[in-house]
């Protein structure tokens, strides 16, 4: 495997495949978490919206998102956008649900304090709702690291053009299991690094 690693590193294919996958995963991860949090904020903002969307969220959450893969590829074409969407879509709904729950569980007395100071809804969100939900948002980040790897690798299986997911499928088809193992190792290393980065962020943001 080490031999293969040196060889693939030498001809540049490893670097380009890893780069592609890493890029897709990071982007999928950021988009998924961001959209999930934004959606949660909208739900908090508008009780009417949350009432309407609630049943759909439950259904979408229960559904295996990777099953949407073929539809996404039809919609966005077989390339980056589809794979990134896969990486994002897998974490959006669960992020929305978890973060929205955290928003609603903020101690209403903090809101009372703000309300007596005449705070607007935006101010209440910025001063109390969002900061007191940071711990929850960070823990969804940790979950989403893993999820977006799943989404992206499955996306690459389906699109099958580039990336570590492609290397796995390809290695499997030509019975080159060393290549499969190599790709898996690289994924493990990158996923661990991403997780560590999230933990670093956690220590920076949450002081107590």
């Amino acid at each position: 495997m080490w031999h293969l690693f040196i060889q693939k590193l030498g001809d540049g294919t490893l670097l380009s495949h890893s780069g592609v996958t890493l890029f897709e995963t990071v982007l999928g991860f950021i988009i998924g978490t961001l959209l999930g949090t934004i959606l949660a904020s909208l739900l908090w903002w508008s009780p009417r919206l949350s009432k309407t969307l609630d049943p759909y969220l439950v259904i979408l959450n229960a559904m295996p998102k990777v099953a949407l893969g073929p539809i996404i590829i039809v919609a966005f074409g077989p390339g980056f956008p589809s794979i990134i969407s896969m990486g994002a879509i897998i974490s959006i709904i669960i992020t929305t649900i978890v973060v929205y729950t955290a928003f609603r569980e903020v101690d209403p007395n903090y809101l009372k304090v703000l309300q007596t100071f005449g705070a607007t809804k935006t101010q209440a969100f910025r001063e109390a709702i969002l900061p007191s939900s940071f711990p929850t948002i960070i823990s969804t980040l940790k979950v989403n690291v893993g999820l977006s790897w799943v989404g992206v690798i499955v996306g690459e299986f389906l699109v099958s053009a580039k990336g570590l997911g492609y290397l796995i499928i390809y290695g499997f088809q030509v019975f080159n299991f060393t290549l499969v193992m190599l790709a898996l190792m690289i994924i493990a290393v990158f996923a661990t690094i991403m997780y560590q980065l999230v933990e670093l962020l956690e220590r920076k943001l949450i002081k107590d």
């Binding site: 007395n109 001063e127 107590d208």
Partner: peptide
Amino acid sequence: YMLQQDYLFPWKTIEENILLGLKLI
């Protein structure tokens, strides 16, 4: 309005906490 518990915002320093009302305006 002062409540039974202080409800100081734990992520703000004491100074930021007591300036909160003024910050909002």
